[in-house]
Design a protein around this nucleic acid. Structure first.
Lengths: 223, 223
DNA sequence: CACTAAACGAGAACAGTGTTCACGTCAAGG
DNA sequence: CCTTGACGTGAACACTGTTCTCGTTTAGTG
């Protein structure tokens, strides 16, 4: 934990940050698939092999970008929710997340598109991914009776147990499931929009998005 | 349209099919990002440049695989729905689509993950992508009154107009929007599962999936 | 202070990739 | 028959990720 005050390690930390920053710029310009280690090095005036003193592979550099993006969108969601409760807070979060994705589509695709680094996502990435789910979980209303449209289901309590322990300990299982559905709707809808699957379906997708998120929020008991 | 009976064009069509088949195998083994034109050629005993007589680029070969995958999952959805109506039909479609994705994750990622071919998806791919949406649209119930949880929204009729014209001409706008939400929930939930975003959230994701799809189906008026 | 071990940047090299081109060869049609 | 076009081959170019070997510079120790 203790950061040595060496000049060595200081410039190392600094340069590591510059590499990530340059890689982020490169990512937003050409996308994750075309992000090349060599062009990042060129941008910094380095030779490609020098980057290997800081990241052991291209994938590890991508992992750093993934964590950064998760933290970024999580922070955006948190500030959007700040001070706003209930359905209004949920809608504010949804709009903020969608706006973030629209402004930085390549970073959205990096974290919510097809995994590129391989099938074993490092633990650090799943930790960072939890930020935004905490924001969503912090919103779901007090444990009122679930709406009529949320039928009770057998064994649901046990099935969503792992989720309840971490996020929503005092809510009925149906509400926990509804929260997962709401989060799924948010991420899914933004992803499908970003990836072009709604092309030509509506004249004003923002309005459909708002409407859908409102319905999804109501399902969790928000009002 | 008329296919010439030449020997030339017959072996050409045949070989084109073999190339796509080999590429599909390669895709399922290494994924779209690592699909290399050269290894496809090796698998067929050809030299890499020979493939360029049949596909002008690697992206065009990927496009063929995308169309094929869309058609495949659309056909699976159609046969699952065949003869089953209402909520049961919707659930059958959902389970079939999820099973298809689980069996061929790389093909799912190819069509519903981050776009890899570039930002302009060819028209042929969006046409193929419509198959599954037609199946979903064919399910939504007769135009009964939308449930209480589906509030009326201003201007919605006009906003979802493009969608209504193609798929759901005689339903109220709220039901059209709900159908889009249901389709989004299906694709979104399968994608998030495939891409590892539910890791550790439940003990039995299949049950949560069924429950969520049931709620989504009810929202469109199915029962 | 002197010295050793580690970290660092540079550059060359290797294997692999998508793509292009010039070259013979063989089927199709006038 | 004979010309034109499609076809497969092999070499080449410009890239890529990654590894290795060098001097050089810094950190920590006797």
């Amino acid at each position: 934990m203790g950061a040595p005050e060496n000049l060595r390690s200081r410039v190392r930390a600094e340069l590591t940050g510059e590499i990530v920053a340059a890689a982020r710029v490169e990512l937003t310009e050409v996308g994750a698939a075309n992000l090349s280690l060599r062009s990042v090095a060129r941008r910094l005036g380095m030779v490609p092999s020098a980057l290997y003193r800081y990241f052991p592979s291209r994938d590890s550099l991508l992992t750093a970008l993934i964590i950064e993006a998760y933290e970024d969108v999580g922070a955006v969601a948190a500030t959007a929710r700040d001070g706003v409760d209930g359905l209004a807070g949920w809608l504010a979060v949804c709009r903020a997340v969608r706006a973030w994705a629209g402004a930085q589509p390549q970073r959205w695709a990096l974290i919510y598109g097809s995994p590129v680094v391989g099938y074993a996502a490092p633990d650090a990435t799943v930790d960072a991914a939890l930020r935004i789910t905490e924001v969503v979980a912090g919103l779901v209303g007090p444990a009122g009776p679930p709406p009529e449209l949320l039928p009770p289901a057998a064994h649901l309590e046990e099935i969503v147990g792992p989720m309840k322990e971490v996020l929503l300990s005092d809510r009925p299982a149906e509400v926990v499931a509804a929260a997962l559905m709401a989060w799924t709707s948010l991420i899914g809808m933004v992803s499908l929009e970003q990836f072009g699957h709604y092309k030509g379906a509506t004249t004003d997708f923002g309005a459909v998005f708002d409407y859908s998120m409102e319905v999804a929020g109501r399902l969790t008991g928000l009002s």
